[in-house]
Amino acid sequence: MVIERILIFLLALVGFSAIVGAKNIIKKVFGLNILNAAVVLLYILEGSRIGEQAPILGEGVTTIVDPVPQALMLTAIVIGVCVTALALALAVRLYKATGSLEIDTISERLRSEH
C-alpha cells in the first residue's frame, strides 16, 4: 500500500511540475492530465481497500470494492476530458494568433501587437 501511494504521489508531482514549469502550453495541458490521472488512481486505490472484486453484484460476488469512488471518478474523468478539449482548442487558437506554442513567446507577441 505504501509503495503505491508513493508512486501516485510521484505521478502527481510530475504532472504538477509540468503545469508550473513547462514552457510549452501543450505540455502544460498534458501535465494537467497527469495530475488528474494521479487523483483518479488515488481514489480507486483507496476504494479498493475494503474488498477484492469488481462491484458488479452477481453469484459468488461477496467482497466488492467501494463502488462510490469509481462512480465519482467516472464523472471526474469526463470533466477532465472536457477541460482538456477546451484547453487544446484554446492552444490551437493561440497558435493561429501568434504562431507559437511557447508561453513566453505568446505573451510577448500578444503584447507587441499594441
Binding site: I25, L32, V83, A87, L94, T98
Partner: peptide, 22 residues
C-alpha cells in the same frame, strides 16, 4: 487575442486548483 491567453491561464490555474479540491 489576449483574451485567449487569459482564458488559458484561468483554465489551467483553476483546473489545477480543482484537482486539489478533489
Amino acid at each position: 487575442d489576449e483574451a485567449l491567453l487569459s482564458s488559458f491561464t484561468y483554465l489551467i490555474f483553476s483546473a489545477t486548483a480543482m484537482v486539489f479540491f478533489l
